[in-house]
Amino acid sequence: MIHLRGVIALLGRFPALAGVDLDVGPGEIVLLQGPNGAGKTTLLRLCGGLLAPSGGTASVLGVDLTGKRRQVRSRVGMVGHASGLYGDLTVAENVRFWARACGAGAQDVPAALDRMGVAHRLHDVPVARLSAGQRRRTSLAAVVVRRPELWLLDEPHAGLDQVGRDLVDTLITDAAGAGATVLVASHELDRIRPLNPRVVTLAGGVVHDDVAKRDPEVRGVQGSRAEDPAQAESAHGVRDPGVTGGMGAEDPTQAESAPGVRDPEAPKGKRDA
């Protein structure tokens, strides 16, 4: 799903990534940790196709990022430091716009809003009037509705209350359970650890430590995440025991029914065409 070899990414002249090697499979939850300026956000942006690699080879979701990075964008859901929302539009209008823009159906919008707790009182409130936490919830709803195959979350718990943080954790485990890959950049290690992530430490623009390389068993744990029926819930909170997803997906028709992730074999939306 993600294969990076010696990837260099320049921000101006500064090598924000200075030779990253990383392999991540479907269904994995990867925690990117490291000090400020380690390259976590840059790595997320590169995986989302927003940055072109200046050196090395990079493939995400089977797409070579050196030449065709636009093709990967519509299959990625990203929540960064900024909300990615229009302040003058309401919560519902924003999520509906992004659903349509991504080629997803607007029929899933109410469920996504409801799931992130922004459906009722906040439904028609302009985003500019929301608190930081409410904006974060709306951003996540806009990602949920597009059913990404790759989730890129940059400090996803920031600004959220306890309920919101729990919601994010559920989103992450559900997405991975449905076969999507989740990359989380976070300084809140205690918050993420219960999700049993693979921990990758970045420092100075390179992978300083990768727990999967030290302990290959860890990857096995992550790879089987989607086979855990308790975690095979849909992104809309509907338990779907038939979903296996990930590398262990045995029945693509069942994986398709998981709203949390697009099935790669399913008929593709117009953005993937």
């Binding site: 636009r70 990625v76 990203m78 990615g84 229009y86 823009a101 991504c102 953005r271």
Partner: peptide, 12 residues
Amino acid sequence: DGVGDALLLSGI
């Protein structure tokens, strides 16, 4: 507020 990136990610 990051809508430029979001628009790029939409694939439009």
